[in-house]
Simulated scan of single mutants.
Amino acid sequence: MKLEEFINENLLYGRALIDLQVSKKGSNPLWTGFVSTNQGEFPAYIKKCRHLDGLCVEIISSLLGLMLNIPIPKPILVLVEPNHPQIFVNEPTFLFGSQMYDMPSFERFLIDCQLSDECILDYSDLHSIVAFDELIANSDRNNSNILYDGESYRFIDHEKAFLQSQDPRLPINEMDKIGNISDIVQHYKGENDVYIHKLMTKIKKTINDEMWATNCELLIQKTKNNQLLSDYNTILDRVRNFLIARQSVLAVLIEDAITPPQHPQQLDLIGGSNV
């Protein structure tokens, strides 16, 4: 599929319908209900992002993940008018929307089934989501930002990716981190050299075969040409530069994240490893 076709298929444009419900999930103002989009009506989550660049980061992260075959709900650029009965805005405003699925959070699933989060290690594409979260420096893949119904996973909420305070060549800042799947891997399997070797083999293949900076750059450039996102050009340039810099040390960062801290790889800040 050509890049333009991919974006047209996966980035939805919509208008918030009435009779939305206020949701208590998450820390952002959040509503659930139907959105009328260019591809029909969809049940969706609609949220006000906390940060000025949150809308753009959410859209870019979602599209990038979908391009890498990560199961992420389609992002929706949702227009809200000033007279909307549930969402109060002073002027026509774009909010971030996400296609809604009838799935509990991973956190709720674990409680209901009395399981530990170790069960996510059985996920067949574990290597892909670990690599993706490290690529975008997602500091908030806690169990509430994973949907799971016992069969399928969906990964949501990427507003904390690409933080301006994050050096793209360094590990995710522990002060920003709320929870990551790499932490689960480290806790249960970090000292299992055979497991880590096999997982890293898959991760390195994913990085080499799919996570080319040039592909990321093409996606961002195409989104940058979107007139509705024209105010975010500076942010898009920052994201582009971040991805290019981070890819050069990505495998080392991931291995450090999933292994115990007493045996870390040593990063060469010029862009490689000194091991």
Rank of each mutant, 00 (worst) to 15 (best):
I178R: 14
S128F: 06
S144P: 00
S128R: 14
A137D: 09
Q99M: 15
P75H: 02
G65E: 01
M67P: 01
N69Q: 09
Q114E: 14
N138A: 06
A137N: 09
Y153N: 10
Y101G: 03
L66C: 05
E174N: 08
D133H: 08
I120H: 08
F162H: 06
K204V: 13
P92R: 12
S165D: 11
K160Q: 12
I87K: 05
S182F: 05
E174W: 02
L110K: 11
N180D: 15
M200E: 11
Y123R: 11
L199S: 02
F155V: 01
P171T: 06
D149N: 15
L110H: 11
F109K: 11
F155S: 00
D193S: 06
S182L: 03
V194K: 15
F88Q: 14
I203Q: 07
N138T: 10
E107M: 11
N192G: 06
H197N: 02
Q114Y: 12
K204W: 07
D133A: 05
P92V: 11
H84N: 12
L64S: 08
M100W: 04
I120Q: 01
S139A: 14
I136P: 00
K177Q: 15
A161G: 04
Y195I: 07
M67Y: 04
D140I: 07
V130N: 00
T201E: 14
L79H: 01
N180V: 04
I146L: 14
I156G: 03
I129F: 08
K177I: 14
D149C: 12
M200W: 13
H84V: 03
